[in-house]
Amino acid sequence: MKTRKDVLITSAVSSLLAVGAFTLANQGVAQDAEQEQERCYGVVKAGANDCAGPGHTCQGQATEDGSPQEYILVPVGTCERLVNGSTTARTE
């Protein structure tokens, strides 16, 4: 007697095999490139340790000696381009 579990697991692997040939045929080829998929960085990504190279930088960041630092923890960047945030998204 096959259980629901057996049926669904068998069906899952069968389904995977059925579309498998399609998957293999499309290895490395953009599918649904418009919406579904995004490629990025790769070898052009800056190495993390370049920042820490023998120089790093602090140009223009000089602060008054010993003065307390101003903390700005309220985002003031492009968050404003994200609309309908506070009300709907959290109620999911």
Partner: peptide, 10 residues
């Protein structure tokens, strides 16, 4: 050699 130039060298 820095990351952003790596593809150019390749």
């Amino acid at each position: 050699l820095r990351g952003p130039h790596q593809a150019h060298f390749l």
